[in-house]
């Protein structure tokens, strides 16, 4: 059980949610009363709200839309801004959130991605950025060719944490240089035309910490490194690593504690070397 500021055991608590009916619609706030249960997280709060679909003042409303998946902080789906902080909502435990001075939960969608509805945002840009940096190992074939190149334990221990990145978007939300790009669909525009326009808009903007870190991950794999210069060329272009303003917010908010600033520093140095090589005609 949790207690309020007067040490009274509370039976319910308030949840304020910033809602939006669709892209381009104005946002508005709704308040809900949720009955307290032990071991609640923000997901179970949203599940209760969906089931009752009634505001604190007793008015019927639509269920709040949100994204979630694994509920154990490995899929990256349920990112939102909770009491002002970007994080995964599955691991946001009510007992911890209501501990201290906050007596209510405030849930908002991420601000750096276009809102689809309520707490659901469109994070396609994250996956597009992985395509831009060619975040893959360019193997010849999927036929059996024996084992991969030998990797030392030390190298594995550097790579594994980078590979835990679940593309949740926290680092981008917290980054001052990462700004929202929202492309409005024209009437009657085909999927292909719209996607093309969206990608063009994304491709000139800052690629963000996760993609830089993934580029470094693949550049340190023996086969992945075969296209290392292509990745560095991309990272030295518009929206590349030089956009980073070194605020270091990314590493602070990363739920997986990935050393993003280390990756960015590595990328910065590698890009410098890459540029020198280009000037001297070696690349």
């Amino acid at each position: 059980m949790i207690k309020d500021a007067y040490d009274q055991t509370i039976s319910s608590f308030t949840v304020r949610i910033e809602r939006q009916d669709g892209p381009g619609s104005p946002s508005y706030w709704e308040t809900f009363d949720v009955t307290y249960e032990s071991d609640m997280n923000v997901i179970s709060v949203l599940q209760r709200i969906a089931a009752m679909s009634e505001t604190a003042t007793g008015e019927k409303t639509t269920p709040v839309a949100w994204s979630c998946g694994c509920l154990e902080e490995v899929c990256g789906s349920c990112t939102m801004v909770i009491n002002g902080k970007v994080r995964q909502s599955c691991s946001a435990l009510v007992d911890n959130l209501l501990d201290g001075t906050d007596q209510e939960l405030v849930l908002q969608p991420m601000s750096k991605f276009p809102v689809v509805r309520d707490l659901v945002v469109d994070r396609q840009r994250i996956f597009r950025s992985l395509q831009r940096v060619e975040a893959w190992v360019p193997v010849d074939t999927y036929y059996d060719m024996g084992p991969g190149p030998k990797v030392s334990r030390a190298q594995q221990e550097i790579n594994y944490p980078l590979s835990e990145c679940m593309s949740c978007g926290c680092c981008m939300e917290a980054c001052p240089q990462y700004t929202k790009v929202e492309v409005v669909r024209a009437d009657g525009e085909s999927d292909a035309d719209y996607d093309k326009r969206v990608n063009e808009a994304y491709d000139t903007q800052f690629i963000g910490p996760q993609a830089i870190s993934q580029a470094m991950l693949f550049n340190s794999h023996p086969t992945g490194a075969q296209i290392a210069e292509e990745r560095l060329e991309l990272l030295s272009g518009p929206g590349g690593v030089q956009v980073c303003g070194n605020a270091q917010n990314c590493v602070t908010v990363c739920p997986k504690e990935i050393p993003l600033t280390t990756s960015i520093a590595r990328a910065g140095r590698a890009v410098t070397v890459h540029k020198f090589k280009k000037w001297f005609g070696k690349s």
Binding site: P147, R153, T223
Partner: peptide
């Protein structure tokens, strides 16, 4: 072996 070639960060021995 294939997953190893694809760069999966399997734990390694010494």
């Amino acid at each position: 072996d294939l997953m190893d070639r694809l760069g999966v960060t399997f734990n390694r021995t010494q």
